[in-house]
Amino acid sequence: MIQDNLQPVERVIRVKGLQKRFGTNHVLKGIDYEVDKGEKIVVIGPSGSGKSTFLRCLNLLEIPSAGEIWFEDKLITDKKTNVNEVRRHMGMVFQQFNLFNNMTVMKNITLAPVKLGIMSKDEACETALSLLDRVNLRDKADSYPAQLSGGQKQRIAIVRALAMSPKVMLFDEPTSALDPEMVGEVLEVMKELADSGMTMVVVTHEMGFAKEVASKVLFMDEGIIMEEAEPETFFSNPQNQRTKDFLSKVL
């Protein structure tokens, strides 16, 4: 089927010349990157290199100082874009979980779909329960965040984002705030998500996850993407001296 081969890959995110300054601190110095549907991009790099800033620019939690970000066929860095509309389709998972402390797990998950008129309350509850089943936490539906372990909180946070049926999921060091024995359960959920075909951009220090799941690994340093490669090449044959130094420290 020649036709199929000619089908263009679906581009989910396109970043062109992205720059971000905090006052005089030039954090992102020109990032160009494209994420295709179904890709799992893992971003690594030293602390302060701008990984979080990059990720947070993608859903406009940080406003870029220069450059363009396209989500599907929308230029979202355009001032006229409806930011809330864009964010619905981009799930985000934070290092500190950020579950809503004043709400039960169920309310955490159903709040956005119901408030945004995407689902009725009943539909949202049903969706929430089936998602909770997927992470084995159905019995926590009526708990408050303060009653959960870190690993449970993070799995709920993932479910909360998934309840919006996002087209891409952004993860900012989702396991860095966890006790070691809880890292596995969260990575497991993320792997399943990856297998289900979700498009993902993951900032992490879990090199094992990068090797196993990533379709591309990006190494960020000094506000740019220093190196990008498929995981096998990236870890076995890094080109850049910076990458080599970094890998020798973390592996």
């Binding site: 859903n59 939690l61 981009m90 956005a112």
Partner: peptide, 14 residues
Amino acid sequence: DKGQEEAGRSLGLS
């Protein structure tokens, strides 16, 4: 916590 607001906004809530 600032994260509470960010989590809300990241879901598309106004």
